[in-house]
């Protein structure tokens, strides 16, 4: 994954095209292509538009009025959701921000250190360590959840914030990416020069290497942030106390209640809408970072 902010494609330096036919075929508007892209966009936007309109409906209107016709009860629905068990929903929101924010930050730091160590040092066992990490990328994470639960239960950490935070802090894929960023963006002579000037190891890492790796580390952070924000199975298994739930586990529980009391459905739908807003806003503002090359490659700043 490279965080390339590329400008408009630079036209090649060839002389003007010799044949007119070519340039006209290249510029001909591709109507079918446009239609296909718009159908894709509509398919992807449709559930979002639905949740926008559905969250404006009262419980009676939800199943009786036309699907995409909005109503006027959005504010009532938000008030009702906020009143649910003393604002439990907002606590879930705060929990999710805590799990994703702290977990992703710690994971990025751990990955940056390990990736830097792997890229910039020669030491015995380096190849073995890297292969273990590559294997770790392929381990299906959620298969680990049950043994993790049993082990954390032995030390009494289940049903705490730590039970979700600690397993989120290690990301073999993040280490793999950080190693590539470190190898590509921190030149050896810069490190050598800093050391020759007498800079301490931590200063070299913190003030020189980390800023050079920063564009890549932002991407590692975003990846891990989204992964934790979206995670369901880990907190679902680890947590019993609903005051510790993240939004995913909380809303899934609300939906379960809705099966017996359909009046809950409006709260579930309003909750779904509000939960999409923060990450949706994050995505739109950080659009330029979302150029994803899974096996990395060069990092251009």
């Amino acid at each position: 994954m490279a965080t390339v902010v590329s400008g408009p494609q630079v036209a090649s330096a060839r002389p003007a095209a010799p044949s007119r036919r070519v340039s006209s075929s290249a510029r001909r508007p591709n109507r079918i292509g446009t239609v296909v892209l718009l159908i894709g966009a509509l398919y992807c936007l449709m559930p979002v538009v639905w949740v926008l309109t559905a969250s404006t409906k009262s419980a009676n209107e939800l199943f009786s009025t036309l699907t995409f016709v909005p109503s006027t009860h959005l504010w009532d629905n938000i008030r009702e959701l906020s009143a649910y068990r003393g604002g439990l929903y907002w606590r879930w929101m705060a929990n999710t921000a805590l799990y994703a924010g702290v977990g992703a930050l710690a994971s990025t730091l751990v990955s940056a250190m390990a990736g830097y160590g792997l890229a910039k040092f020669v030491f015995p066992g380096k190849r073995a360590v890297f292969n273990v990490i590559l294997a770790g990328v392929l381990v299906p994470g959620v298969v680990l959840a049950i043994p993790q639960y049993l082990l954390l239960a032995k030390v009494g950490l289940t049903n705490t914030y730590w039970s979700v935070l600690l397993p989120s802090m290690i990301s073999p894929y993040g280490i793999y990416l950080a190693r590539i960023y470190a190898a590509a963006s921190v030149p050896d002579d810069v490190i050598e020069a800093a050391r020759t000037d007498g800079a301490r190891e931590w200063r070299v890492f913190g003030s020189i290497s980390v800023p050079m790796m920063m564009p890549g580390l932002v991407t590692v952070f975003l990846f891990q942030f989204v992964a934790i924000w979206n995670n369901f199975m880990l907190p679902y298994i680890m947590l019993g106390n609903d005051r510790l739930f993240p939004i995913t586990v909380g809303l899934s529980g609300l939906l379960n209640q809705g099966a017996s009391q359909p009046a809950m459905y409006t709260s579930v739908i309003t909750g779904a809408l509000l939960s999409i807003l923060p990450l949706g806003a994050l995505f739109l503002t950080l659009q330029r970072y979302w150029q994803v090359d899974l096996a990395a490659g060069a990092v251009k700043a």
Partner: peptide
């Protein structure tokens, strides 16, 4: 040739911001 590329790119990518639980719910 295709038009509306910026709009389509953002729209099609947007569901990645929606957790699987919320997507299933919608």
């Amino acid at each position: 040739g295709a038009r509306a590329r910026g709009f389509s790119r953002v729209s099609i990518f947007l569901p990645y911001a929606v957790p699987a639980v919320i997507a299933s719910l919608l």
